[in-house]
Design a protein around this nucleic acid. Structure first.
Lengths: 262, 262
DNA sequence: AGCGATTTGTACGTATGTATG
DNA sequence: CCATACATACGTACAAATCGC
């Protein structure tokens, strides 16, 4: 079946009576996110016009507009007056490595990192990832070692939905060596990552982690978690970093969102 | 003039022809923010009902609702079905302190912080601040203790140009107690802070810091620096935080700016 | 430069649903 | 049950931006 037909088909569900109890603009929002994440519309593609959507769906213009506006506020869609609504490009204005931005002596440059994938498994049941990825989903975990500027190593656990990042699950392990996960994700996942949250604390590493990092047992180090979101609700991946003591500083950059009005 | 009369009066401007070119829902949003910031409605107060606002203003229900919804999304207003729209409590809309965002057990809420200014001096010569504030400027330093959720204390050194933040230099020390520096700076300094950089590392605290924090000598803790910029070049302030070991996580948020320019 | 077609942006007025007290 | 007040939704109208002819 061609893409155009599948695009039209995706709205059919909205004609069924509502089982979820969600408002209509939410249901439409979800359908559009679903279509984008399934690659029906790729970054840069134009979504159906508002008027068109009022025909494809049983919804009114106001409802359609609210859904689109909502997606635009979340950064998943870019709307252009007189032109149309487009799936946001994934070109990242987030800084270059998303995580592990260690700063060099000059206080400006970002130290290079080299990654090595160790192994990849499916995890089940509950765990630290459940909170972010949900309990019902099929979650994979990729363990990696990340070397920073040939100075020290970081141990990292990467969690994501196996189906959402199917290509990452299927890519041969050999090709994950040295691969930039950021690139893999942006290229192979349709969803633009619009928000990343980092959580940082000082923690005593357990023996497994200490073993991986080759540091003495009970070493205190930095424990960092990263949650990458597309829109406000969907978590694309969740990642843990175990950073041993070192004399480099991690950088976090926050820009005050230009508030329209107010 | 009593408050009620002033509350009604504040909407009068909306009847004048629009000079700003802003959409109506924005103008109403601005008027409400203005009223709140001037104390016409204090935290916890109920705003006029939607229907009431359609009478107080020349706007329709949809427009009024959009303004209120917008304010609710920003966290300035809390809307309760069947009850009314209320000005958010201070702690709630003191949205995310810029620094020291420690996350509560629920993984979402930001723990409250209480600050106490200890002393304020002018610093000369070179120091850790020079790199960011320049060598030639007259720099003040304000030392503070920051209590997080009554659980632990952070020691902080705040550096800024004495002339740029003249009011902060002149404000009596008593009034700095408990003051939110963010508010002081945004209100009293005309410069909008557009970017904040955080640098984080694990460090062994020196004896002075350990003394302030009342932790054993040579304690390893988190050392955080924050650089607040207006525009790209100008540093408004530079701040150091000494965070003792604790079991809370610090949050850093990075958002891809919603691209209007494309 | 102008004009029409397309498309988003704002706004109105109305109707109905639903939570609260 | 009722009044109040927010929440959703509809259909319509017009304004404003963009593009192609």
């Amino acid at each position: 079946m061609n893409t155009e037909a599948r695009r039209i088909e995706i709205f059919e569900g909205l004609r069924q009576p509502d089982r979820s109890g969600l408002p209509k603009y939410q249901r439409l929002t979800n359908v559009l996110v679903d279509g984008i994440s399934r690659g029906l519309w790729r970054p840069g593609d134009r979504l159906p016009a508002e008027e068109e959507l009022t025909e494809l769906t049983p919804y009114s213009l106001g409802t359609v507009q609210r859904a689109l506006r909502h997606l635009a506020e979340q950064g998943l869609v870019v709307r252009q007056h007189g032109l149309g609504s487009f799936v946001a490009e994934m070109r990242r204005r987030l800084q270059d490595p998303w995580h592990c931005r260690f700063i060099g002596d000059d206080g400006v440059s970002v130290l290079p990192i080299y990654t090595k994938a160790i192994h990849r498994i499916e995890v089940t049941g509950k765990g630290s990832w459940t909170k972010y990825l949900g309990a019902g989903s099929r979650v994979m975990r990729v363990d990696r070692m990340i070397n920073v500027n040939e100075e020290f190593d970081i141990f990292s656990r990467f969690y994501a939905d196996r189906t959402l990042l199917a290509r990452l699950w299927n890519t041969p392990m050999e090709r994950l060596h040295g691969a930039n996960f950021k690139e893999l994700i942006t290229k192979q996942c349709q969803l633009p990552i619009t928000q990343i949250t980092h959580l940082v604390r000082v923690e005593r590493f357990d023996s497994e982690v200490c073993g991986m990092l080759e540091v003495p047992k009970n070493t205190n180090g930095m424990f960092m978690r990263a949650i990458a979101n597309a829109g406000h609700n969907l978590t694309v991946y969740y990642q843990e970093f175990f950073i041993p003591p070192n004399n480099r500083s991690l950088q976090f950059l926050e820009q005050t969102p230009s508030s329209p009005g107010l």
